[in-house]
């Protein structure tokens, strides 16, 4: 890959990779490992990409593969408790801390579709393709994630 293109894509999408990996693995160190690994693969990639969206989607796909492997590794780090994870992020409002903590407390299978849907704004069909799930499974996971989050945030308010 052309050096300038690589630098541009790396800066543009490293946070995307980090967020996908953090949602998958629940541990910031593992997520940083994912960033390093995916950027290296991008650097060494000999393929021709058809634009920025193609690169981004490719990087997300490679990140997900890396995360699946990392999740199976014997020496995988333990996911960081959501409250502790929230301390490491410079949020600007209590509401953001509460939401982040609630999201990171969800099972991983809900967090990743939620991120791809709400943040990256992929359609259900696109998410199904990235995660190798049927669209109905993506819809179900999004729906259940919202229901759990709603309950959690309401309970958190009471506390």
């Amino acid at each position: 890959m052309d050096r300038n293109d690589f630098i541009r894509y790396a800066e543009q999408y490293k946070d995307t990779v980090y967020r996908v990996a953090l949602n998958f693995l629940g541990n910031p160190q593992d997520a940083e490992d994912a960033v390093q690994e995916v950027l290296m693969r991008l650097y060494l990639s000999k393929g021709r990409f058809e634009g920025d969206e193609h690169v981004k989607r490719w990087m997300i796909r490679v990140t997900l593969n890396f995360c699946k492997n990392a999740a199976r590794a014997e020496k995988r780090r333990v996911p960081t408790p959501p409250e502790e994870l929230a301390l490491s992020v410079p949020f600007e409002a209590e509401e953001q801390i509460a939401l982040f903590t609630a999201v990171m407390a969800l099972p991983e299978k809900y967090r990743v579709p939620l991120y791809l849907f709400y943040y990256e704004e992929y359609s259900v069909k696109e998410i199904g393709s990235l995660l190798e799930l049927r669209e109905s499974a993506v819809t179900t996971r999004l729906s259940r994630a919202r229901a759990i989050l709603r309950q959690e945030l309401e309970e958190a308010e009471k506390r």
């Binding site: 050096r3 790396a10 940083e32 949020f91 999201v103 943040y119």
Partner: peptide, 27 residues
């Protein structure tokens, strides 16, 4: 939870990785 709040929240979640081209070229 609205999409805006979710996006606003996760926009603060960022990697601390600093790109160093020398590392890539060496590897």
């Amino acid at each position: 939870m609205s999409k805006d709040i979710y996006r606003e929240t996760f926009s603060h979640v960022r990697s601390s990785y600093e790109l160093n081209m020398e590392d890539f070229e060496k590897m």
